[in-house]
């Protein structure tokens, strides 16, 4: 049977260290404040040893990733030093960027703002690289009245799109997976938005990855059991807490969820 997945999320920003600019691993809170964690490759190797099922790597500097030699070099190192699937995104600007990222070792490409601005990119990328390669990430915030609305540009720009409708459109156009991120829960540890995830997941044929708000191990099992998510992604939780994917994994398994127990 297909296993549910736990996915550490590596958020990357450029930092000036001495005279050098280097990509570093950070975590964010509500998509705003960011905190440095350390070296992305070392952390990825730790996650691999802790049986992470996959990695999501996102450039959050809003710089174009396809021409960023530092980021492409980082992807290359991640791909050569770990043997697990890599979904990479943040600053994807064109279908050509898919080719560049795959050439540097990515297995899937995550798109967000570019897809919301120009949805045709989903169709084009899916026909060229296959649906399994196209991951559409949707950031949203709930309005005062509770209605979730799609945001773009690192959740700074509000659009008129409804999350459920946009997820459906993306799937219809050929997306292979949807990532749902509640920007207001990001980094807060107060739990995942299972309600909206359930609404999206129950009406979609493709897998949904839920993210934003993991603070304790039971949030992961909630997201899968109540939210209907195929996978849970978390950044802050794995980077800072005294928790790791192995401990989280045993909790999730003890909740009766089928996940991988040996490599």
């Amino acid at each position: 049977m297909l296993k549910k997945r736990l996915i550490p999320k590596l958020l990357i920003q450029h930092r000036q260290i001495g005279s050098m600019i280097r990509p570093v691993l950070v975590t964010t809170r509500k998509f705003d404040q960011s905190f440095d964690v350390g070296d992305p490759v070392s952390q990825a190797k730790i996650y691999q040893a802790q049986m992470a099922d996959e990695l999501i790597v996102l450039n959050i500097d809003r710089t174009p990733i396809g021409s960023d030699v530092l980021l492409l070099g980082l992807i290359e190192r991640l791909a050569s030093e770990t043997f697990m699937p890599l979904a990479v995104g943040g600053g994807v600007r064109s279908v050509e960027d898919f080719g560049r990222l795959l050439d540097h070792g990515a297995d899937k490409v995550v798109i967000n703002s570019i897809a919301a601005d120009n949805p045709d990119i989903i169709d084009t990328a899916a026909s060229q690289f296959g649906a399994q390669c196209v991951v559409v990430s949707i950031d949203y915030r709930r309005h005062v009245d509770g209605t979730p609305r799609v945001y773009t540009d690192r959740a700074s720009h509000r659009t008129q799109r409804s999350v459920v409708e946009w997820a459906h459109e993306a799937a219809q156009r050929g997306a292979g997976e949807i990532v749902l991120v509640d920007a207001d829960r990001d980094g807060t540890g107060r739990g995942l938005d299972c309600t909206l995830c359930a609404e999206v997941a129950h009406s979609l044929p493709i897998p949904v990855i839920l993210s934003g708000g993991c603070g304790i191990a039971s949030h992961f099992s909630d997201g899968i059991l109540d939210g209907g998510a195929e996978a849970i992604a978390a950044g802050t939780f794995f980077a800072f807490r005294d928790q790791n994917p192995i401990q989280t994994r045993s909790h999730v398994r003890n909740s009766g969820i089928d996940i991988r127990v040996e490599t």
Binding site: M1, L2, G176, P205, I206, P207, G228
Partner: peptide
Amino acid sequence: IANGARVRVPHVGWND
């Protein structure tokens, strides 16, 4: 062939 929440397609992840 996809079948509701039980069988999603693409088939992504770890399987026996």
